[in-house]
Amino acid sequence: MSDASSVTVIHRPLWRVRLELFWKSVRTNWALFIENPIGVIGLAIILFFALMAVLHPILMKTVWDPTVYDPITGYDFEILRHPAPPSARHLLGTDPLGRDVLSQLMYSTQTEFILGVVAALITVTIGTLIGALSAYYGGVIDTLFMRLADLVIMLPFISILIVLSALFKLNMLKLALVIGILSGFGGVTVIIKSQALSIKVKPYIEAARVAGGGDWHIIVVHFIPNLLPLSFLYMMFTVTSAIFSEAVLSFFGLINIRMSWGIMIHTTQTAGYLLNVGQYWWLVIPAGLAITLLCSAFYLVGRALDEVVNPRLRRR
């Protein structure tokens, strides 16, 4: 033992080493991610929208007069007929109620982001936890959650949301919660569970058990870290579906929020301009395009992450 007792212990504290390792892995994964043009395009779009969300309050404070440009209460008296086509004052025109379309578009971006991220976080937390528990314990717990998942998958998602919106006053947070729970207990759980099953039979799980590790140790130290990359991937896809569902519900005027891309289209529709898109394009195209772009952006990032997470898909 004499030669070994003289070993010098690492002088940096453990947390710093871990932080450095974490950064290193982030950097290598980033390098893999940006190799894929799909992911870069998706990320660029997301950043563009994020910029819009951040810029809106700044513009309201500096350049835009709130009485004219407020996305909800603004009205431009200098223009006689609303909706007005794009001009120097209103880059994307005004809506039937005389409000600035660009301001509405930018203001809504914040809401969409919050909705998407909250719903995705809830989904992934539920999905990872339930998936890991089902795979680890099997038996009754597994049967229970998997049959529940089957049930949730079979439910018509949008119709359920419509029914729920009739029963409760759905605001943005409640909507995020509902979408998160529904998709969390549904498909995501099944996918994460199947991944967890492949971890369950790895010899390192047996090694942990021989070391004396209990159920909780194995789930927290061995299952979850190996499931997180997949969970993160499904987070991206959930954001897409959350934004999309919100747009549908808002279009029908079923949720209790002040402004969103869906509501912009809804306003157009109730004012009777929807069937006249050719003439009043600025009322529909910007909001519609924003929904499509942001949804696909998260989807594209998800696809690119898939290649980082699953090395088998990677090109050599």
Binding site: K202, P203, Y204, E206, V210, A211, H222, N226
Partner: peptide
């Protein structure tokens, strides 16, 4: 009592 496993590639958690 401890155990050493056969497969040096699968017996360690790749994320640790």
């Amino acid at each position: 009592v401890q155990m050493i496993f056969q497969d040096p590639y699968e017996s360690m958690n790749p994320r640790l």
